[in-house]
């Protein structure tokens, strides 16, 4: 990390000498690089949409699976499987097929009457959404953690609420969400960091270009392009450090505000 920090203040292209240029890389990124701004915009859209959606799916699935249904182990395995495969190259390749012009999605939609369907992966308006769907699809990992958290909530709280005539929704909001808030917070922080680091899906789906029209240019892909395509290692290091700072600030913000909405067992 220290080495990359040093590099971020230099002009270095792997072959020549490193030349100290101070903060020029950082200034250039913020003030004179339209593609950098595009990558930031795409990445923020990706994180802001995909993380809450993923956590919502994870929590909903965990609540359903926590009903004591038979076959829980089987269901849990099925739902967890995409988390193992989600960032694999094979799945990203498959995603290109599924959302292609003649892909599975369009075949299903056309079979129920839709016409003039786009190639989702090749249309700037929709391309990022396919990556978001891919990210949400891997909700098994936070789901497992939610399940572990749900198991720790005392059942007598629900029984007491039922005696008081609380509805299922009230019990969910007043008991489940409240007592699960530390686990939600934990998942939120980790999934946010994970989403910021997404690379493989963007690289494979866009064939390394971030296209169409930079619509899938996630920040890590842009770092990769600068480092291994343009060989601007110093600039890429500065970009990587900017990302680290942003993630750090967002994490600090989450920790700083956590006392307002977290409920820890045993606290008043």
């Amino acid at each position: 990390m220290l080495a990359s920090l040093y590099l971020s203040f230099t002009d270095y292209n792997l072959l020549g000498q490193t030349q100290w240029i101070g903060l020029d890389n950082y200034v250039r990124a913020i003030s004179d690089d339209q593609k950098f701004l595009a990558a930031v915009g795409v990445t923020l859209s990706y994180v802001i949409v995909s993380v809450p959606l993923q956590l919502a799916f994870a929590l909903a699935s965990a609540v359903v699976l926590n009903q004591g249904l038979a076959g829980l182990t089987f269901y849990r395995s099925i739902y967890y499987l995409p988390s193992l495969l989600g960032s694999s190259v094979a799945i990203a390749l498959l995603w290109r097929q599924i959302f292609g012009s003649a892909g599975l999605v369009n075949q299903v939609l056309s079979s129920i009457g839709f016409t003039n369907l786009p190639a989702w992966i090749a249309t700037p308006e929709y391309a990022l959404n396919t990556l978001i769907v891919l990210h949400v699809w891997t909700f098994g990992s936070p789901m497992i953690i939610f399940l572990a958290g749900l198991r720790q909530i005392p059942q007598d709280l629900y029984e007491a609420a039922a005696v008081d005539g609380a509805s299922a929704w009230t019990k969910f909001v007043r008991i489940t969400i409240q007592l699960l808030s530390p686990v939600i917070f934990f998942n939120l922080v980790l999934q946010m960091i994970h989403a910021f680091q997404t690379f493989t899906q963007s690289y494979v789906v866009s064939a390394g270009t971030g296209g169409p029209v930079n619509s899938t240019l996630l920040y890590t892909l842009y770092i990769y392009q600068q480092a291994f395509t343009n060989f601007h290692m110093g600039y890429a290091s500065a970009l990587a450090w900017l990302l680290t700072i942003v993630i750090g600030l967002l994490t600090a913000l989450a920790f700083g505000t956590s006392n307002r909405w977290l409920h820890y067992a045993g606290e008043k």
Binding site: A3, S4, I223, A227, A236, S237, A240, W241, G248, T251
Partner: peptide, 18 residues
């Protein structure tokens, strides 16, 4: 401790080149 913990949580993106 809090600062180091935050650092541990966020220090997940080290640029690799060396």
């Amino acid at each position: 401790k809090p600062m180091l913990f935050a650092l541990a949580v966020t220090a997940v993106f080290t640029f690799i080149w060396t």
